[in-house]
Nucleic acid binder design. Structure first.
Lengths: 159, 159
DNA sequence: AGTGATACTGAGATTCGTTCTCAACCAGTG
DNA sequence: CACTGGTTGAGAACGAATCTCAGTATCACT
């Protein structure tokens, strides 16, 4: 872990951290930049990028790769958690449901890797998008799990 | 399943699919391009990109986002599987160890999402990199499991 | 305060992966 | 044969992220 000692808490860095802490979505670097500029209009994008990776490397933020092919996202919630990403609107919600330790150990044993962590994202439709896309009647109820194993290409092999 | 009907099997597309099937690593689009050019020197990169996303959208290939911030990777192994990514050398090995159904259902129930799939990557150090980075003595002896150390290996089926 | 070393900043250029544009090209159909 | 519509390849364009570099702020010491 990069020494915390040589990390100066400059106004720019504070501003970035503030924005990240205030965000409850998972903003991209560009979004962070845009928000930071509202309070620190003179900040440059390079500084935002630098600061974000600094925060990540010192454990003050998490970098998410939601695999939507687009930009990296950042999360000030540094506790171990996973995400469910909506195929409809792209929104990501936090999940608190760790992979069982036994599974990690098993993976480590089988692969020989020294496992240090994992990234897990579920994909699917958020309640809102289910409501909008499929028949709106059923959506309102919304409680149904509907573990729909069969949407586009996600999980089938075609031999 | 996106219609297979309207997918013309042109020589270029065949070449890309061939390369992907022959690969046991997880090549990036650029790597696929490079390999395809060995047999089809006149192919353009746009065609390779187009073909890859075509293959992905018709379920013939998987697109991986190994979160190393870099390019997307492609995998002709379309069976549901996960990966362990080495922080040292960036190599990714296949894992065959699905998340328990109960967990998916639980996530779906809690979040209200209609879960269609998930992406799971473990991070850590592969046996080789463990050997090289920590004391080299231990490396040779291979105290650990030392599964299939050779690069690019898929290590399903250890059991 | 003064001085030098060092870290930080911001603007712009640069790189890289990917997608878009568009003219030329083929493969079928009438 | 001409038409039609999907396909190709070259290069331009794009967005994300990083790099470069001169200027600036901050620290450690005197």
């Amino acid at each position: 872990m990069t020494d915390l000692a040589d990390l100066r808490l400059t106004p720019q860095r504070m501003a970035v951290l503030e924005v990240l802490r205030a965000a409850d979505d998972h903003p991209t670097a560009a979004e962070v930049y845009e928000r930071v500029r509202r309070t620190s209009p003179r900040i440059g994008s390079a500084t935002v990028y630098r600061t974000l990776s600094l925060l990540v490397s010192t454990g003050r933020a998490l970098e998410l790769n939601l695999g939507d092919g687009a930009a990296a996202r950042y999360d000030a919630n540094t506790c171990r958690h996973d995400h469910a990403v909506c195929d409809g609107c792209g929104r990501a919600v936090d999940l608190d449901h760790p992979v069982p330790d036994g599974m990690m150990a098993e993976i480590a044993r089988r692969s020989g890797f020294a496992i240090t962590g994992y990234d897990l994202q579920f994909r699917g439709m958020c309640p809102d998008c289910q409501a909008n896309s499929s028949d709106p009647a059923r959506a309102a109820g919304g409680t149904g799990p509907t573990v729909n194993t069969h949407a586009k290409g996600a999980l089938h092999a075609e031999a």
